[in-house]
């Protein structure tokens, strides 16, 4: 990884005037000319997001997710699939992580849909004690029950990958081979606020594929080059083919770790990560058009305008709510 110049980043700006920068029009100063080749990317004409009810973690998630994948016409036959949950920190009673019942349910649904292999992989950004996270969260127990392997992406074998956009100005990142060789990457975020990015969605969830053994804990290279810039470069380079959001119990307030649990009661499934993030943002009372990474993503990665997003399953109005936000994120509020 070589970096010649650090870009104007929202993160470094934040240390002086974070809020002002966050709610300002996109300030990716490095991208007066586009930091990607437009010909390399296609924004789909339309994107579909399916919302399914899940009142608690006792529901049959294999069934719920299987039906949503069918509704979206996702073909997983013969594919090697990597599930990337959000596993950050464990604390009794918190809603920090993608619940293991949702992860296991997704694995079962995907195997039933004919996938050749399902692996669960995550590389937490603060903790390198994976055994603690797996046992504390209960994920190891769930995965053992269904015979699915877990890969610690912080320690996995890596390969240097040129980045397909240059919002960060980094030319490349070392990324886990397990992610690169998967036919299908499934991003499985928890529905949470994020005190810097606004939302911990499908796109931000890809921070967990960056290996700590190369970049450290936290993965500070992503911060020093701008969190939003890094979200864009990662998603331009590694495609999450499917997103499955654990919106059963979300986290409001000071997410992604110190916030409060907030029951919402759904699972969202989609193909276009920007469309899923935009839908989730609206569901919790954030305006995607005020979120710089989503606005930038809408130009080359996916749809965030509701006119281009087909809602399947339950209507969005059924789950619409207003998550508490920390003061600095109030500028992201959806004006009703």
């Amino acid at each position: 990884m070589r970096s010649t110049k650090r870009p104007p980043s929202l993160f470094s700006v934040s240390r002086r005037r974070f809020l002002g920068a966050l709610i300002a029009p996109i300030a990716f100063g490095a991208c007066r000319s586009r930091p990607y080749r437009a010909a390399d990317f296609t924004v789909p004409e339309r994107s579909a997001v399916c919302l399914s009810p899940a009142a608690d973690y006792g529901v049959d998630f294999a069934d719920v997710i299987g039906r949503a994948l069918g509704e979206l016409g996702v073909d997983l036959r013969g594919r090697r699939v990597l599930l990337k949950p959000n596993l950050v920190e464990y604390d009794d009673g918190s809603a920090t992580n993608t619940h293991p019942a949702v992860v296991a349910g997704a694995a079962e649904a995907i195997l039933r849909a004919g996938a050749a292999e399902v692996v669960v992989g995550e590389g937490p950004g603060h903790r390198r004690d994976m055994e603690y996270l797996l046992t504390g969260s209960g994920l190891d127990h769930y995965l053992r029950d269904i015979g699915v392997r877990f890969v610690d992406l912080n320690l996995a074998d890596v390969r240097r990958v040129p980045l397909r956009s240059r919002f960060t100005t980094l030319p490349d990142l070392w990324l886990p081979v397990d992610v690169l060789r998967a036919d299908v990457v499934v991003s499985m975020p928890k529905l949470k606020t994020h005190h810097w990015a606004g939302l911990t969605g499908s796109m931000k969830n890809l921070f967990g594929i960056v290996p700590g053994a190369v970049y450290g804990w936290p993965k500070n290279v992503l911060h020093t080059h701008g969190i939003e810039n890094s979200i864009l470069d990662l998603n331009a380079t590694v495609r999450s083919h499917v997103t499955i959001v654990d919106g059963v119990i979300g986290m409001e307030g000071d997410g992604p770790i110190m916030g409060r649990p907030r029951p919402v009661g759904f699972v969202a499934v989609g193909i276009d990560p920007a469309a899923v993030d935009a839908t989730c943002a609206r569901l919790i009372g954030l305006d995607p058009f005020r979120m710089p990474y989503l606005v930038a993503a809408s130009r080359f990665l996916g749809n965030i305008d509701m006119r281009q997003v087909d809602q399947r399953g339950e209507p969005i109005s059924r789950y619409r709510t207003r998550f508490d936000l920390i003061e600095r994120l109030n500028g992201l509020r959806l004006q009703s």
């Binding site: 970096s3 190369v214 970049y215 450290g216 500070n220 290279v221 911060h223 020093t224």
Partner: peptide, 13 residues
């Protein structure tokens, strides 16, 4: 000390 050159100092390194 940072984990890698060009980043902030953290406790473990």
């Amino acid at each position: 000390w940072p984990w890698i050159d060009g980043t902030f100092s953290w406790v473990e390194p």
